[in-house]
């Protein structure tokens, strides 16, 4: 975990300013702000439909924002051309809620796919070694030639994590990393996320409504209510607050 005493403005790796996003008359995000610091695990909690997934998709350019700005490693993603955005995306790992493994490819091909897309950044002769290293870090070397349909939900999540790690990203985005998993597998995934953070020194933005996940992994938390930052602080700080809207998040703690 990071030492917050040494944080400076120069350590910001990702910043969102006054993000607005609507779908017709439905204002999903209303002026959301966020700063993610180097090496930090920032958890964003919010109810279903509160705009968490929309926000994270805006972050990687999968959705256009209505207004506001998103800066990733000092680059404003709204002003980047497609080529520059693709290069920047290699530094951002995205773990999707449903794993999003390519189901027509084996585990090996799933991991090789991003490497081949960024062959200018990696030596193609090392592909095999990089695939093995990524699979080893999630403990799934034995599954290398299996199809995604042959894997359990937890294994799919771990392979998706390995596919994300293979490009050695500087920032990790997790969209509901423990959703749909049993408590034991959830715990395994959370531990894996911590190990990855230690091993690769990544900064992580984790979207979840799993209180246990937030408690174990967060350095700092933001509660997203009605599309805006409702409260911010450490898990210990937020869980003690008396505000009923905040208490509602922690009542099953």
């Amino acid at each position: 975990m990071m030492d917050k005493k040494h944080i400076t403005e120069r350590d910001i790796v990702l910043e969102i300013k006054d993000l607005q996003k609507s779908f017709g008359d439905n204002h999903v995000i209303n002026g959301f702000n966020l700063k993610l610091y180097q090496g930090e695990n920032l958890v964003i909690m919010g109810k279903s439909g509160s705009g968490k997934s929309v926000m994270i998709k805006c972050l990687v350019g999968l959705m256009e924002l209505d207004s506001g700005s998103i800066s990733v490693m000092d680059k404003d993603i709204t002003n980047l051309d497609q080529r520059a955005l693709d290069i920047l995306r290699a530094d951002i790992g995205f773990l999707f809620q449903g794993s999003a493994l390519y189901d027509s490819m084996t585990v090996r091909e799933n991991l090789e796919f991003p490497l081949r897309r960024h062959s200018d950044r990696f030596d193609e002769t090392n592909t095999e070694a990089m695939v093995m290293e990524a699979l080893e870090s999630v403990g799934l070397i034995h599954a290398i030639d299996l199809m995604p349909s042959e894997l359990s939900g937890g294994m799919q999540k771990r392979v998706a994590l390995a596919r994300t790690l293979i490009l050695k990203p500087k920032i990790m985005l997790y969209d509901e990393p423990t959703s749909g998993l049993d408590p034991i597998t959830s715990k395994e995934i959370i531990m894996l996320m911590q190990e990855i953070q230690k091993k690769y020194g990544t900064s992580s933005l984790i979207i979840t409504h799993d209180v246990d996940c937030a408690r174990v992994i967060s350095d700092r938390m933001i509660l997203l209510i009605d599309g805006t930052n409702y409260a911010e602080g450490s898990f210990a700080d937020l869980s003690k607050r008396e505000d009923p809207k905040i208490k509602a998040f922690f009542k099953n703690k």
Binding site: Q82, F94, F96, L101, Y102, D103, S104, P114, R117
Partner: peptide, 21 residues
């Protein structure tokens, strides 16, 4: 059906995020 299934399971988004068109 194939592309539809890839869309709803976010495989197309995953491809885009990995820097592929």
């Amino acid at each position: 059906a194939e592309l539809g299934s890839m869309r709803v399971t976010e495989q197309i988004d995953a491809m885009e995020v990995s820097g592929t068109n």
